[in-house]
Structure formats: structure tokens, C-alpha cells
Design a protein around this nucleic acid. Structure first.
Lengths: 203, 203
DNA sequence: GTCTATATGCAGATAGAC
DNA sequence: GTCTATCTGCATATAGAC
């Protein structure tokens, strides 16, 4: 009899892989390192996953879903000044980044690995489509919160936000200068805030 | 007697490594693949470089120097409308990116590999310091070209530009949507252009 | 079903023949 | 100085004993 169902072991291995690769990089996430982290014998890996690439497929899907949940839940507080609301949202992300640098670096490593692996190429695209969707939801939520209305094209604005977040992440990861990262994002927040106007009520 | 000096072979190996890794990714750049690309026997590699990491060190230095030269030489044309000058500079970069996607992806792979390798950690930092310096020079050159004066803090603005370029690159690499990338950058160009004012002549 | 033991291949690095 | 042949280790994946 199994101590744990196959599904449960799949989930455990995914979590173990996430821990190992966030900590030491995607290249260090060998099947051996993953099963060692999960406290399982090596053969369990290929019992639960057809290949390492299959695990990476599921990992990208799992992570982008997690990021989306975290982002959606983050947009709750404040109320009032719109520019300040946007700044606080960006500051919230930078705080998350500084608290989990390996995690965000791993997301880039995953995407770039997928881009270099024909078998996984569709996932790289899907990952960013989810990012754009999430950014769109966040922009809508922020406007709702402050009773504003976007004047700019929302898809373009959403892509701009993802551009900012990605760029802020790569630069921060390289030099860990939180103040400089926030200063750069503040410039952007000022501009984005100016692209919305107070909403006219329609009861 | 040598057909080629040791220095010349070092340079050849660096170029071969750049070709292989830009084409197939940093992980595919094994010592064997590099010497095969260069048409040299395997032992030559360790005759010219102490280790693969030493080659990667030199490669980061070489590439960031090349990028800087290319960027500096790019800022020549136009004259006239400041916003249009900035847009054209950004369009020029996106054109370069679309023409050399593997090269730009490789720069991220290198940086992230350096961030994951304690021995190379200093290089990740140096790479971005050079990016900031280059961005500063470009901003100064653009202002000079249109006879404008920056009103915003230049180091902050330079970091913002690197943030934009990095984010535009990662998003484009993931979905290859050139139009959307340009649209997002246009938003930024409009804002950055507004941060400078016509210069008051002295003389 | 589960895990030990192994097949197979390729990595970085080097010894030693020429 | 140069390059063939090899050392050593670890990767993914699996066969087969329990």
C-alpha cells in the first residue's frame, strides 16, 4: 500500500522542485536534487513524471497561476489618491521581490529555458499571456478602487505594466538597489496615473 | 610552431562561444560545442582558458563593451522633434532585438547564470553598471541633439530607461509581438520627452 | 507498487604521446 | 606546443528485484 497517493507525490515533487530551483537555480534542479529535497527515492520521479521537461511544464503553469492569485489578492488596500495607489501597488511588488529574489529569478530562468526548448516553446508564450491578463485585471481593479476611468488603450497599458515589472525585476536582481528601483517605478506611476480621469457616475 | 598565437585563439574561442550560445543557449555552450564551432581540438580550450567560467567572465565583459559601442554609435540621426527622436532610438533598439533575438536572450542567460554562480557574482553587477552608464550617455546625447535640458534626475532616468529596455526585451522575446512592444515603448517615450525642456542658450 | 541497482551518455578537465 | 586518448563524475532514464 502506498503511504501517499500518486497525485500527492506529484504535488510534493513540484513543491520540492520549486524550492530547490528557486534557491539554487534551474540548472541545479536535477531529478536527483528534487527527490532528495522531497525525501523520495529517485525512481519515484519517473513514476510520477514522464520526464524532467514534463515537470517543468507543470511548474510553469503552477507558478503563473500562483503569481496571478498573489497579484489579485494584493490589490485591496488604500483608496483615495490614484497616483499613490499605483505607487503602493508597485512598492508592494518590490517588497515581494526583495523577500523572494530566488523565486522571481527562477521565473525568468524558466521562461528562458522554455524559449530555448522547442518542446516547451508554447509555455513561454502562455506565461506572458497570463501576465498580460493579470496586469489588465490589476489596472481595472485600481481604477475601480479610486473611481477612475482609463483613457489609454488598456491592452497597451497592461503590456506597459508588465514591461515595467519585468525591467524592475531584472535590474533589481542584478544590483539589489531597492531605492533606485522604487525611484524608477515612481516615474512610471506618475505617468500612468495621468492616463486615467475621474469617472462620471451613472448610478 | 603555432598556426595561430594563443591570444588569437582566445579571441576565436570567444567568438565561437558567442555564436553557439546565442544560437542555442548558454547551456548548449559546452566546451566541446565551442571548440567544434571554432574547428579546434578540445584540449585547446583548457590551453587558452583555465575553466569554462573564465571564458564566461571574458564573454560578459566583451559583450557589454560591444553593446555599449553599438548603442553609442546608434545615436546619430534625426534632429528636430524631441519625442520623435526618443521614439526612433527605442525603435532602433527593437529593430536590433528582432534581428538578433538569440543575442539578447543570451545576455539575460549570462546575467542570470552569473547571479547563480558566486564566483561570477561581481560580473552581474558590473554588467548593469555599464548599462546605466550607457543609458546616461544616450540620454545626454539625445538632449544634446535636440538642444534640450533634462529636468529629472539623470541617474534615476537612466535606470528607468534600462528598466524599459529590459522589460521590452523580455516581453518581446516571449511573444515576438513587435507592434505591441513598440506601442508600450511609445507610452514611455511620450513621458520621458516631457521631462526635458528647451535649453536656454549661453553664448 | 516501490525502490535498488544499473544502463547509457555527456560534462569539465588532464595525462601523456608526438 | 599541440592534440589524442582518457579520467572522473554526474545527468536522465529504466530494468528488474522485492
Amino acid at each position: 500500500m502506498a503511504r501517499m497517493s500518486a497525485d500527492a507525490r506529484r504535488a510534493e515533487l513540484l513543491q520540492a522542485a520549486l524550492r530547490v530551483m528557486s534557491r539554487d537555480g534551474i540548472a541545479a534542479g536535477t531529478t536527483r536534487a528534487i527527490v532528495a529535497e522531497a525525501g523520495m527515492p529517485l525512481a519515484t520521479f519517473h513514476y510520477c513524471f514522464r520526464s524532467r521537461n514534463e515537470l517543468l511544464r507543470e511548474l510553469i503553469t503552477l507558478l503563473t497561476t500562483m503569481e496571478r492569485q498573489a497579484a489579485t489578492e494584493a490589490m485591496t488596500p488604500s483608496g483615495g489618491d490614484f497616483r499613490e495607489t499605483l505607487r503602493q501597488a508597485l512598492r508592494g511588488y518590490v517588497g515581494h521581490l526583495a523577500a523572494n529574489p530566488g523565486h522571481e529569478l527562477f521565473l525568468f530562468e524558466l521562461n528562458h529555458f522554455a524559449l530555448r526548448t522547442p518542446e516547451l516553446h508554447d509555455l513561454a508564450d502562455e506565461q506572458y499571456r497570463k501576465y498580460y491578463e493579470t496586469a489588465t485585471e490589476l489596472l481595472e481593479a485600481a481604477a475601480e478602487l479610486c473611481d477612475m476611468e482609463w483613457k489609454a488603450d488598456l491592452p497597451v497599458l497592461a503590456r506597459f505594466v508588465v514591461t515595467l515589472i519585468d525591467g524592475a525585476t531584472t535590474t533589481w536582481l542584478a544590483d539589489r538597489d531597492t531605492e533606485a528601483t522604487l525611484a524608477a517605478l515612481d516615474i512610471a506611476a506618475d505617468h500612468v496615473a495621468a492616463l486615467a480621469t475621474p469617472r462620471t457616475r451613472s448610478v
